[in-house]
Design a protein around this nucleic acid. Structure first.
Lengths: 262, 262
DNA sequence: CGGTAATTTGATCCTCGTCAACCTGAGTGG
DNA sequence: CCACTCAGGTTGACGAGGATCAAATTACCG
């Protein structure tokens, strides 16, 4: 079950030793980007500027970690560009992916408020750049701009609902359906007929397995079957959806009469 | 899989028709209780009194609902006494239990901040009494006492971490282990040898199944086996743990050498 | 003492995880 | 430019964990 320790080798590098110290540059960052994030909704231009001034920037190469599970929570991040995978490892070495972060979304914020170390690892899937605010800066911002805390509450609340939904799916639905849902989500697929989309960052069978709670073997079998049916096509680390409505049908568990029709 | 529609009959009664209108009594409630809740931590005595004045009280008989999945989110609740089960129903009619609420904990708060209707149903397991604050009252409180929003953020953050952990467990661990963990959690068990505890509210095999993502049959088999080993004893709707360390060993997946010893 | 709901227990089946082997293609270095 | 390497991917065979189906059996309640 699960990717055991092969990838952990790379992980270890990122966790402790390899990650360089935070570059403490406080140069101003693009405010338009901040304004686009839900966290800073309803902030005035002037306040936005002050928030931007308190931010730092950090980059990570593909495969490197922003922070590791168990690290003490020093800061929260806002992804500027790239893609980040939030994953947990069990004591037994099994890996579970909790979510993928797209630009404009925040990550690492929860333990800043509820205490404790980071409960998961944040890995750059692509070369990624993020703004970050230290624990102290965050506290100051929270005191200065109370609406920001309300925004944060809304964001975290959304995350609870998301996790609850995924929990329910994992508990009640079979693998194929969960994989279909995950692919639609990752591809951000519109369901119009013929509207082909694709996942715009490299992703392996293993990654999808960790995201849906199954094994790379099962994912491989499922994707092969779909490819044969012309629902999608895939190269290594890449998936393109040819018929979103086909994937949608599986995600919604329509009984697919078109397969059993006489 | 899952309790299908038998219980839904009762649910429907609670959902729409049977629930009486909110009794709009604004009588003051016990402040000591409020002070004990994490939500109101760091509030001054005078502020606490004003919060208490804004609260309403509502009671529910065992089996009745505080609110139903899909209802518009009018208020959040703080359980005063009793026990509440938060559950989701899938379109197919399967039921999943997300959490049990103990006195002092809040529920129904998330959608007040992140929008949308209640994502789950809140059912009284015992005769229960709760304080509640309307959406408007909540907004006012949030504006007047910013630290309360920070507290709420910490609580909701905790809930995210909890859901993430349960998600990981469901994805990677087998049933027996999840059941063990659930029982320890529900019994609030200390693990000292010989420290027998019990679950202090009525709970069925079906309930445990919905909490752990399995079927009542499997739960029944597991509990029977444990009972034979003297780990616990159970009557209908009731479980008493005789050897918490035994349950703990299963939850932690110790290879239980004492069974295979020569 | 029925009647009902909770529980137990057996038998069977099926999804999917596990094990194993092999294939493929993108780098890489000589 | 090609052999080599190796991670990612495919596929088959097999079996186990647990879901499903089916009946009893038991406990509680009025």
């Amino acid at each position: 079950m699960w990717r055991m320790l092969p990838r952990s080798g790379a992980l270890c590098l990122c966790f402790g030793t390899k990650r360089e110290a935070f570059p403490e540059m406080a140069r101003p960052i693009d405010e338009g980007l901040l304004a686009g994030s839900r966290l800073f909704a309803r902030l005035e231009g002037r306040d936005l500027r002050r928030v931007a001034e308190a931010a730092h920037i950090v980059s990570r190469a593909a495969g490197a970690a922003f922070f590791g599970q168990g690290d003490s929570a020093r800061a929260f991040y806002l992804l500027i560009e790239g893609r980040v995978r939030i994953a947990q490892v069990t004591p037994e070495g099994h890996q579970v992916t909790l979510r993928y972060i797209a630009p404009g979304q925040i990550f690492g914020a929860v333990p800043l408020f509820s205490g404790g170390p980071y409960p998961a690892t944040a890995l750059a899937v692509l070369k990624s750049r993020a703004a970050w605010w230290s624990r102290e800066a965050t506290r100051l911002l929270a005191e200065t701009y109370p609406p920001m805390v309300v925004n944060a509450l809304a964001i975290v609340g959304h995350r609870v609902q998301e996790m609850q939904d995924r929990y329910r799916e994992l508990a009640t639905e079979r693998v194929e359906r969960r994989v279909a849902r995950a692919i639609l989500h990752l591809a951000g697929a519109r369901t119009e007929i013929g509207a082909r989309t694709e996942i715009d960052f490299p992703i392996s069978r293993q990654d999808i397995a960790e995201l849906t709670g199954t094994t790379l073997h099962t994912v491989s079998r499922i994707l092969s079957a779909w490819e044969q049916q012309g629902i999608l096509e895939s190269r290594r680390m890449h998936i393109r959806v040819l018929r979103p409505e086909g994937v949608r049908a599986i995600a919604d568990d329509l009984k697919r009469e078109d397969e059993t029709r006489m």
